[in-house]
Simulated assay, not measured.
Amino acid sequence: MYIGRQYKITDFLAWTRWETGWIISWSLLVTIILQVTNWHFLTVPSSILTLVGSALAITLAFKNQQCYARFNEGLTLAGQVSATSMVLANRLMSMVGRPDAATPSPGLKEIFYRHFAWLTALRFYLREGRSWENTFDPGNVSFLARTPSPESHSALGEELKNYLSDAEVQKVMTHQGDKESLILHWQYEAIRDLHAKNLVNEYPFTLLAAALDDLVRLQGALKRVKNYPYSRNYYSIAVILVKIFVLFVPFGLYPDARELGATAGIGDWTAWLNLPFSVVVGWIFISMEKVGENSSNPFEGNSNDVPISSITRRIEMEMRIMIDGKSDLKPIEAKDRILF
């Protein structure tokens, strides 16, 4: 997540440099052809360009609104994971832990650390690549090489060793199903054992199970956002229309650029203004489409994603303070104003 006040224009230009280079090349080629051949019958009436541009702007507005809704949903769900984690921790401390005890019971601490393992497995799952995501976009490849996410240079198995026994880590890593679901299943077994040993009665057991139920639902909702992309038909038609529109822009703006100097007899000179005009218009539409698409996958690891790594780190810090009285962990700091 970008946490600066706003992106600089240079950031956008660097991010869209491949598309900008393509627009410049095409606009220059069209302008040269029209100037050299005088085939003005190839130009497009400005009224048609206006109608198509207006329709495309509406299409992009709809698409970008839906893409932002996906990002906002991902951020909301991550916040709910934080709140539900604290609910679970507080219920465990008040219903299982003893306030007068110098140290928490081993079983209680095990549940806490298993929750940290679940958070770790969940964030690694959410950072996995998908074929429709934008990590392979040329503008994003250079960013990820310069500012990688925490999960990209670490391994799940190694991080789980901080929370689980070697035997449990082995079970998780060899589990054929979802690893995070297995860890949550162990949490259900843990509170069942507490109830079987009469360490909690029926009502606290129900409350603890309800908190785990909420985590299961939130996990499922996060996976839905991760595993199912923004509708590819809307995405595809938006990309196709933008490309077609950008292809026609130089043909539509050329007559207007030439007309600027026609009365002064310098129409052949002002016709070259078609190049900057076309580049600016094309860049605006391509940037709008690209911004929307790069907001539609909120966990892929790019600069505009939900900071799931930072959120889970803060959850772990707060829960460690509750169970151990302190935390040696530090919050994840933003790098180049990007928070993961």
Score class of each variant (00 low, 15 high):
Asn72Ile: 10
Gln80Tyr: 10
Pro99Ser: 06
Arg91Cys: 00
Asn38Lys: 14
Ser54Pro: 00
Met95Pro: 00
Ala55Asp: 03
Val96Phe: 08
Leu75Trp: 05
Val30Met: 10
Phe71Ser: 09
Ser82Asn: 11
Thr59Asn: 10
Val52Pro: 00
Phe41Lys: 07
Val44Pro: 07
Ala61Pro: 01
Gly97Met: 07
Phe71His: 05
Ile33Asp: 11
Ala102Ser: 10
Asp100Phe: 13
Arg91Glu: 00
Tyr68Lys: 03
Phe71Tyr: 13
Val44Leu: 14
Arg70Ser: 09
Arg98His: 07
Asn38Glu: 13
Thr76Met: 15
Val81Trp: 13
Val44Trp: 05
Thr31Trp: 01
Leu75Ala: 08
Tyr68His: 12
Gln65Ala: 14
Gln66His: 10
Pro45Leu: 09
Gln35Leu: 05
Glu73Ser: 06
Glu73Pro: 00
Thr43Asn: 08
Thr37Ala: 05
Gln80Leu: 13
Ile58Gly: 00
Gly97Tyr: 07
Val52Leu: 14
Ala102Met: 05
Leu75Ile: 00
Gly53Cys: 07
Ala57Thr: 10
His40Glu: 10
Glu73Leu: 14
Thr43Lys: 01
Val36Leu: 14
Val87Ala: 07
Leu42Phe: 12
Gly79Val: 09
Val30Gln: 06
Leu88Trp: 04
Asp100Glu: 15
Ser94Gly: 13
Gln66Met: 08
Val81Ala: 10
Gly74His: 01
Leu28Pro: 07
Met86Arg: 15
Val52Thr: 15
Ala102Trp: 01
Ser46Lys: 14
Thr59Trp: 02
Ala102Glu: 13
Leu51Lys: 07
Leu88Thr: 06
Ala89Asp: 04
Ala57Gln: 06
Ala57Ser: 15
Thr50Ser: 12
Thr31Val: 01
Ala55Lys: 00
Leu29Asp: 05
Arg91Phe: 02
Ser82Val: 03
Ala83Gly: 02
Leu28Asp: 03
Ala57Cys: 08
Val30Arg: 12
Ala102Gln: 06
Ser46Ala: 11
Ile48Lys: 09
Gln35Gly: 13
Leu56Tyr: 03
Val30Lys: 12
Arg98Ile: 07
Val52Met: 10
Met95Phe: 09
Thr59Ala: 12
Arg70Cys: 10
Arg70Trp: 09
Ser47Pro: 00
Cys67Val: 12
Asn64Met: 08
Ala55Cys: 12
Leu42His: 03
Ala101Thr: 12
Ala57Lys: 03
Thr59Asp: 08
Met95Thr: 08
Lys63Pro: 00
